[in-house]
């Protein structure tokens, strides 16, 4: 005959085990859905927008291409090129879902600009507000950029403030699948 103590210990162990399994199962499922949110944007994108240069009256066209590729289980790579004012600017980066911190993270490079951000999720939308930490040194511009993934579309917005003159250049490019 099994003693009460043994049975009690077994029941507690079983409950704890079930509880542990449940706690593993629930976050794992949530993590998959979170990763799927960014993975849904894998593919080729094209965007046309406008840029408004400081000290210039009229905006100018800006054309961009973006390749979003699967990097690994939780990451995607973003590789983008934009053409404006006879110059081609490359923007690249990585977006990832950090399961342990339960947040989205982004690192984006554009020439001397490197921005990092934690993504703000609102339903199925995700916005990364990137700040240029190199602006804290001698760089000429303060850079603010946002990358928004929203309802199957991507939007890139850029703000550059000339630290000497205070002039602000803005660019806004909506992307659609190519």
């Amino acid at each position: 005959m099994i003693s009460f103590k043994t049975a009690r210990n077994a029941a507690v162990a079983g409950i704890l085990a079930l509880g542990a399994m449940a706690s593993i199962a629930a976050p794992a499922q949530a993590a998959e859905e979170d990763v799927a949110l960014i993975k849904a944007y894998v593919g080729k994108w094209i965007g046309r927008g406008s840029a408004h240069f400081a000290d210039q009256e009229n905006p100018e066209s800006i054309q961009c291409r973006m390749d979003v590729k699967d990097a690994d289980r939780i990451r995607i790579h973003v590789d983008s090129r934009c053409s404006l004012a006879s110059v081609v600017v490359k923007v690249g980066g990585t977006l990832a879902y950090n399961q342990s911190a339960d947040q989205y993270e982004a690192i984006v490079n554009a020439g001397s600009f490197t921005g990092t951000a934690v993504g703000e999720r609102r339903g199925q939308s995700l916005v990364f507000q990137l700040r240029d930490y190199t602006a804290e040194n001698d760089a000429k511009f303060d850079v603010d950029a946002s990358l928004a993934l929203d309802d199957g579309a991507i939007a890139l917005n850029l703000n550059l403030r000339n630290k000497d003159t205070g002039g602000v250049t803005t660019a806004s490019v909506p992307f659609a699948r190519r």
């Binding site: 094209i46 066209s61 800006i62 054309q63 090129r81 934009c82």
Partner: peptide, 10 residues
């Protein structure tokens, strides 16, 4: 055509 020209640069 401007769009094409800009896209060509990419």
């Amino acid at each position: 055509i401007r769009t094409i020209a800009l896209d060509l640069a990419l």
